[in-house]
Amino acid sequence: MIYDAKFFDEVFERRGHDATKWDYPLFVKDNKDIVPMWVADMDFRTPDCIVDAMAKRLEHHAFGYFKIPQAYFDGIAKWQKERYGVDGVTADQVDYQNGVLGGVSSFVEAYSLPGDWILLNDTCYTGFQSTIANRGRNIVYSPVKETADGWALDIEDMEKKIIEKKPPIMIFCNPHNPTGHVWSKEEMIAVVELCDKYGMLICSDEIWADFQTGGHKHVPLHTCCPRAKEIVFSMYAPSKTFNLAGLQGSYSVCWNPAMKARVAKAAVASHYNAANVLSVHAAIGAYNGDEGAQYVDAMNAYIRESQIWLKKELETNIPGLRIHLPDATYLLWVNFEDYCKQKGCEFQEVLDKVTAKGVIPNDGRTFHGATHLRLNLACPRSQVEECAKRMIEALA
């Protein structure tokens, strides 16, 4: 299969196929005449290498209890080495996780108690907020600062919050959702050294690792310095990279055997973490050959063109917007703060006008972005263009 612009330009009909994004949109009563730019899945076809791997497994008409095959761990090792430069990953470092948030939840259960505080950077992914709350823990937030060029951590504020609330763990997002920022190695070392200074452990959500649309090479937190391997538990998922969320399935990498065993024990205790046989074979198809990597490289290039185009189109036609081009992810984090000041309107009016035109974004307030919309650009260019057209009609 050739993965070029023509492949990603295909308008792939998803209505009527159980797609949350299309069949159950936010803010509107039905799915007619909508441009869904919200929930973080993609409107691209899954690459053939994955579908073929599942089809081959389906030829054997038995789906009972099974042992994860070595090819699964070999594929992860190959991907970690070739995509992130991490050598030496084996089954001894890897555990299957039935979803990144499931792994986060198990980590929270393993290393904190109900009522404890857990450190997050803010703005932050909604799933972290709900997972921590559902476990009966509290969240202490340290802001992600907006700069002229993008975003930065406030290490001084993080230390202040750690001293005040004494959190045993931190949930880190690398690359960052929703801003799409890629943290520098120096920033990551500062985070590791700070947490280590106060005896804290870190769960690093790296689900966006493969979406390096700005040309960066992903640097896993657990590789940023020698000490990181001892205190960092990292989460990855083919489900985000290849749009397999309906299959579930992610994995963790942990170099500390005691930490790996403790989190695994927490996961097993709830009986949630049994692997799905098709999910495992989908990952084998994604990681073991060369086609999966070719797909990802072509997809990142395609999405980057959409990010650049939409940023320019919106800023040119809707005065007052602030958009930092993301380093990673397939998102665009759009700030209407200045627009609302100029128009003398509330942010809710912006959201209402946009959704009245059928454009369905994520309300940035759920991520603690008071005047933001989060747009998902993992879709054909024609859909991005229609999004721009309708937003400009609504707001220009």
Rank of each mutant, 00 (worst) to 15 (best):
I169C: 04
V191H: 09
S130E: 07
F172M: 10
M188N: 13
E186Q: 15
A133C: 04
W183P: 13
N134S: 03
S142C: 07
T147C: 03
I171V: 14
N134V: 00
E164R: 15
E146G: 08
I155M: 13
M188F: 00
G150P: 07
N174L: 10
V144Q: 07
I189T: 11
I132F: 03
A133V: 02
E193Q: 15
D149M: 05
S184K: 13
H181M: 11
R135E: 05
P167H: 01
S130P: 00
N177Y: 15
Q129L: 09
P143N: 12
N121H: 04
A190S: 15
N134L: 06
I163R: 15
Y125S: 01
T126I: 02
I169S: 01
S130W: 06
T123Y: 07
K160G: 08
Q129Y: 03
V192W: 11
T131F: 02
M170L: 13
N121C: 07
A133M: 08
N138K: 13
H176C: 12
N138T: 03
A148C: 04
K165W: 06
H181G: 00
I169G: 05
K160A: 11
E187F: 05
D157Y: 09
H176K: 12
I132Y: 06
D149E: 15
R137I: 03
G136T: 04
M188R: 11
E186K: 15
C173F: 07
N177C: 14
K161P: 01
P167M: 11
E193T: 12
N138W: 03
P143I: 02
K185I: 13
H181D: 11
W183M: 10
G180L: 10
V144E: 03
I189N: 04
A152F: 03
N134A: 02
V182P: 00
W151Y: 14
I163D: 02
I139A: 00
C124A: 05
N138F: 05
L194Q: 07
W151L: 00
G150K: 14
D149L: 14
M158P: 05
E146W: 06
T179P: 09
A190H: 04
H176R: 11
T147V: 00
A133K: 12
P168H: 09
P175C: 12
E146P: 09
I155P: 09
P167Q: 02
S184H: 01
D157K: 12
I163H: 06
N174D: 13
M170N: 01
P168W: 01
W151E: 00
L194N: 10
T126K: 10
H181C: 08
F172I: 04
S142M: 08
I132C: 05
L120H: 02
K165G: 01
H181Q: 12
T147N: 09
V140H: 01
N177K: 12
K166H: 15
G127S: 06
E146F: 06
I163C: 10
A152V: 04
F172Q: 12
K160T: 11
G150C: 07
T179E: 15
P178W: 08
N134Y: 04
D149F: 03
V191Q: 07
L119P: 00
T131E: 05
E193P: 07
P175Y: 10
V192F: 10
I155A: 11
L153T: 02
S130L: 08
Y141P: 00
G150Y: 05
I171L: 15
I169V: 14
I163P: 00
P175I: 00
